[in-house]
Simulated scan of single mutants.
Amino acid sequence: MTTFLTLLLRRFALLVALLALVFTVVSVLPGDAARAALDRGASSAMIAAKRHELGLDRPLPQRFWSWLSGVPTGDFGTTVRGRPVGELLAAAAPQTLLLGGLALIVTVVAALGLGMWWAARPSGRLARVLQPTTAMVVALPEFVVAAMLIMVFSFAIGWLPAVTVAGRSGFPARPDMLVLPVLALAIPHIGWNTRVVRGALADAGRAPHVEQAALEGLSRRAVLLRHMLPVALPTVVASVATTVGMLFGGALVVESLFNYPGLGALLAGSIGDRDTALTAATAAVAGVVIMGMLICADGIRAWAVRGRR
């Protein structure tokens, strides 16, 4: 229990440090939030009054503490244009959850299927393809995968749109607009989780009861599903829990590239406006989700280790 609380405090301190860094970086970027919130012809007096209204004339540590102290109560402040940050986050979050949820489903289904096939036939043709391919896609950031998908399926072939257009509901106007963002987000994680599934099943295959089941004449499929998969499941679930957090963070990047109407687009607009409150609030939501999933993954791993003793 003490170890868990120590880990929790460390992750919380890391999150606060990250938010302070985000707040500082946005504040020191070239440009002025007050000028961005006003018309181009605004006078110096109007800009000064707007800076005072936004609190930009206060010291940076004081501004950060004022914003951070309201977060536990759900008060994320207001944007430079006077809109409540919480309302903007609530409006954009469902679209990001849709994108991340679809990417998670694709990741889990593909990784389980490929990983189990690889473990069942470690010397087959597919295994020889998966060995280098999964290592390559794991090393590719989401924005590189997105750029490659756009060049092939949008520009070269013309099958899928490269830009997302929001409908009246705020979600993408057509289902095909989700295909490339989902694939760009899922492909790197499919590579990683496929290797995790294969490795976990390979470790499970060396257990005495699995070897005994094979000697008794059970089919390869029965041994895999009944004896190897249950042993490998805690490791796989912990990897998926980590993936959930990583997908949420990666979604912010992918959304910006595809003009997807979610938290990523909100983050890009807030940086353009030098809106520290909105930028930090978006980073806080992403950080809390990632931190929560990492804690879940740590708990699952610890439970699995205790179960094997």
Rank of each mutant, 00 (worst) to 15 (best):
T2F: 06
L5F: 13
T6C: 08
L9P: 00
L9K: 09
F12D: 03
A13L: 15
A17G: 15
L18A: 13
L19I: 11
A20S: 12
T24N: 09
V25H: 12
L29D: 07
D32Q: 14
A34Y: 03
R35N: 08
M46N: 10
I47R: 13
I47L: 15
R51I: 11
D57N: 10
Q62M: 10
Q62E: 15
Q62T: 14
S66F: 09
P72H: 07
D75W: 00
G82V: 09
R83A: 14
R83D: 04
P84W: 07
V85E: 03
V85N: 02
V85D: 02
G86K: 05
E87A: 15
L89C: 09
A91R: 06
A92T: 01
P94A: 12
Q95Y: 01
T96L: 06
L97A: 15
L97C: 08
L99A: 06
A103E: 07
T107K: 01
G115Q: 01
W117M: 14
A120N: 02
Q131A: 10
P132I: 12
P132E: 13
V138R: 04
E142W: 03
F143A: 04
A146M: 10
S154L: 06
L160T: 10
P161R: 06
V179K: 11
P181I: 00
V182Y: 03
I187C: 06
P188C: 12
P188E: 05
P188T: 05
H189C: 03
G191V: 04
G191C: 05
R195H: 02
V196I: 15
R198T: 12
R206T: 14
A207M: 13
A222P: 06
V223Q: 06
L225I: 13
P230D: 10
A232W: 04
L233V: 11
T235F: 02
V240I: 15
V244Y: 01
G245F: 03
G249V: 07
G249Y: 06
L257E: 09
F258S: 13
N259W: 06
N259K: 04
P261Q: 00
G264Y: 04
A265Q: 12
A268C: 01
T276C: 08
I295K: 00
I295N: 08
A297P: 05
A297D: 06
D298I: 05
D298T: 02
W303G: 07
R306W: 02
G307Y: 10
